[in-house]
Every structure is written in C-alpha cells, then in structure tokens.
Design a protein around this nucleic acid. Structure first.
Lengths: 237, 237
DNA sequence: CGCCTCATTGAAGAGTATCAAAAACTGTGG
DNA sequence: CCACAGTTTTTGATACTCTTCAATGAGGCG
C-alpha cells in the first residue's frame, strides 16, 4: 500500500467531512456514516495527487492545503486551470463515466485530502439527493469562473487580466487589514503567469508598475497588499 | 402575449423532445407527457433569446437552428462563449437558484426552441433521475470544452487556435466529402475572432495562409473544406 | 553566511492590433 | 441573368505590446 495512506488523525473530533460544503445538509450522525467511507491521504508540496490522463474512480476533497490543476502543452508550457483549496473537490467527472483526467493536480503546500470511492459517493447521492444538487451547483460555479476567465483572456488587456486575478485571489484568500486586503498568494509569479496565459516577466513588470501607481504593495514574494481595491475593479471594466 | 409564441407545428408527429439527448432515456409515452410541459418559440436571425443579466426561470432547448451565447465588454468587444445547436440547452444555471444570466443568446439563423419551466423541469428530474444525470453529464462536457479553450487561449499560437476551432466545427458541423470535410461555418470571420479572442483581420490573414499551405480551402464565406485534417491536428499539439 | 530559487529589469525581436483602403461576397430588384 | 448596394472579407502599412534572451537582484532555507 501507499505509505501516504493514513487513518484520520487530524479530524477525529472535528468531523472533517462536515467542513466540506458538499455535506452541509447532513446531520452529525449522517456525517459519521460518511466518515466511514472516507480515506485520508496527505501530500507534501510538489507531490502529484493526480496525473494527466490518469483514470481514477474516486472523488477527492481537499481538507487542508492547496493544490493546482494544470496541463502541460507539448512545447513545455503550463496552463493552470484551477486552484483548489479547503472544501473544494475534483474527480467529479468520473462520477458519471470512467474518464481519463484532462489535467494533473499538484500540491502547492502540505495538503490533506479526503478520498471517497465513486461507488460509495454515488450511493450517498442516491441516499441524500441534496449532495447531488450541491455537486451540480459547484459545477455551475465552476462554469461561471471559466466563462469569466475566457472573457478575460479574450477581451481584456494584460493589466486588466492581472487585476482580475488579484481580485479573485482577494476574494478567496484575502484578509482584511487596516491598510487594505492582504493576499497570501497561492502561486508564484510564474504560476500567476501560467494561470492567465502570460510570461512571468510580463506579470512581474505589470505588477511593478501597479505598485508604482499605488494600487498594490508587494510584501516579499508571497504576499500582496491591495491598497485600492476600487481602482482595481474599475480597471477591468 | 408574445407573438412568437406558437403551438408545436413542426413536431406533432415527430416528438421533438425525443431528439434531445436530455430525454433519450424516456419512452414514447413519457415523452408525450414531457411535450405537454413544453412551449415552443421561434426566432429569426439576429433576434435575442436571452439578454445578459436577465433573470429567467426556465430551461431553453434548441430544437432547430443555431444560437451564440456571448458577452459584451465595456469597450465594445464581444466574447462568444458557446454555440448551441440542435439538442443543446441553456438556462441550466437557474435550475438551482434564480440567477441573472451572465451571457446573452442570439439566433445565428432561423431558430426554434422548446421552453420548459424550471418547476416543471425539476419535477421531471425528480420523476426521472436519469434526466438529472444527463444534465450533469452535459455540464461536465461543457467544462471540458471550456478547459480546452482556456488552454488554447493561454498557451497556443494564433494559428493553432484557429486550427483548433476549425477542428471543433468539423466535429460538430462537418460533413464528409471526397475531397475532405466540408464545414458549414456557424460564424463569420468576425464571429470566429470573437470566439477565440482575436481580431477579424488576424483570422482572415491566418486562414489565407492556411489556404496557401494547402491545409484548407475556403468556399465563399460560409463554407470551408478541410483538405488535410491530420496536419491541422498536428499543428495544435 | 552561502547557496539556490525566484523575481526583477533591460534590450532586441516577433507578432498582433489598429487604421485605412480595396476586393469579394450576398442578396435584392429589375 | 445581370447590375447594384450593402455587408463582409481581404490586404497593406504602421504602431504597439508582449515575448524572448540575458543579466542582475532579492528572498528563503539549510
């Protein structure tokens, strides 16, 4: 067996499944039942949770940490499609049919996941139809996000695309502070570039000029302070 | 009432709903039942079926014709997100919650649609769970397509992006012929440009050079003959 | 403190957008 | 069937922006 297979240590008393929006409709007893179906696994930064083209028959729910879902092109470029963090899941496409994954998933930091077998999940959906509705709802949200991304990539200037990502990250990972919103960036400059189809140099240059304009302030390489959210929002219209 | 509201003329004896993949799991009697819930509507080329920001509470299934789903940006650009044709549907996002549409939908030609109210559709899903699964399956396919589009826009050259669209259209609208695959283009050059985030001039130029290379042959403005599908596929890898 | 990784900056080059004009196509009416 | 008008497409020249390649600088971790 895989050495990274563990019994659930971190959540014996916290019912980790309950923190996941998929299962919000369940009560404590039902959650206990779900917990029995779940296998926990941990990954270190840089480890692959899923290979591009791999066929799996389970659903993976991120319980702690962050991962990126991405593809590599033949000429060595990387396109990041999603950043999944606590509460997000992937593998939903093979709930319906056994399908090769069209992206790889890599841990961006120490990450703990809950894994539930396709069959078990399908039974859960039959037993608790609300879970199926939740899945559908998340898929629709994901469509919304991809539609926005396509509009950004197709019609916006490079600066607007970067503003857009920063606002997206602010929404998801930002914390309010007296000076503005502090973002713990999930991605490096290169990662941001690969998320919006640019080169790292371009991202670097644009972010420097955004700092000169007083829109943002870079704190080291991993944090960014949004000094003027309103102006950022305006710049992408 | 709206003057474009009709009773079903074209499909009294053909059970139009049966041609839609959503309802393939139903038998004739069940289809008859579904038919009673459906309102038919027709649109002329250029008419809007749905406005951006509009809140509706029904699902629209294209029964004949083609429509484009698109957004307009503040600076007058258009991003086409989907082309829906016979059997495709839209409005699925407000099956779960009343949500403003984030795209407009316009008829690209004479188009007939079936409209089913949200409540009725939800009841159908409860009665025939296969329909819900079908919806989920289509949503996943749509995710796949958008993920591909993002990869294309983010990592591929302009030529590769155009090849990619042509192959997509070939798949959906192409007909085999002795010389190659003939595509009835759903979009003008400008439409193609707005589908992949380029200008019409660039699309025009690249397609001309693809013709010079012997990859394609343009027949008027509305048809394209794919002379060398294999080479096109190779060019996008 | 030193090493390695990541980020920044610079200069040159490639490619697309833009603006402008000519050509081709589409559909209409004679 | 042809001519015409409106629309769409193609082609050309220029400007601008991003990419690329190269070198410097900063940050993080042992």
């Amino acid at each position: 067996m895989d050495s990274s297979l563990y019994t659930c240590n971190s959540c014996q008393h916290k019912l980790c499944a309950g923190r996941v929006s998929l299962f919000t409709s369940l009560d404590t007893e039902q959650l206990m039942q779900v917990m029995k179906l779940i296998v926990h696994k941990e990954y270190k930064k840089g480890e692959l949770l899923l290979y591009e083209g791999e066929v799996r028959n389970d659903l993976v729910i991120v319980n702690k940490g962050q991962v990126k879902a991405f593809r590599n092109t033949a000429d060595g470029k990387e396109q990041i499609l999603y950043i999944f963090s606590e509460g997000d899941f992937f593998g939903e496409k093979n709930l319906l049919r056994d399908q090769a994954s069209n992206y790889a998933v890599e841990a961006l930091e120490e990450t703990h996941v809950c894994i539930i077998r396709k069959d078990d999940f399908q039974n859960l959906v039959k037993q608790y139809p609300d879970i199926g509705l939740k899945v559908m709802e998340v898929l629709c949200q994901r469509l919304d996000r991809l539609e926005n991304t396509i509009e950004n990539m197709g019609t916006r200037t490079v600066s607007a695309r970067i503003s857009s990502v920063l606002l997206e990250f602010a929404e998801k990972f930002g914390k309010e502070s007296p000076q503005g919103i502090i973002i713990d960036l999930p991605l490096s400059r290169e990662g941001i570039a690969n998320y919006i189809g640019l080169t790292r140099e371009t991202v670097s240059r644009k972010m420097s000029s955004m700092q000169d304009e007083g829109l943002i302030e870079m704190i080291g390489n991993k944090k960014i302070l949004l000094l003027n959210k309103a102006a950022l929002e305006k710049s992408i219209e």
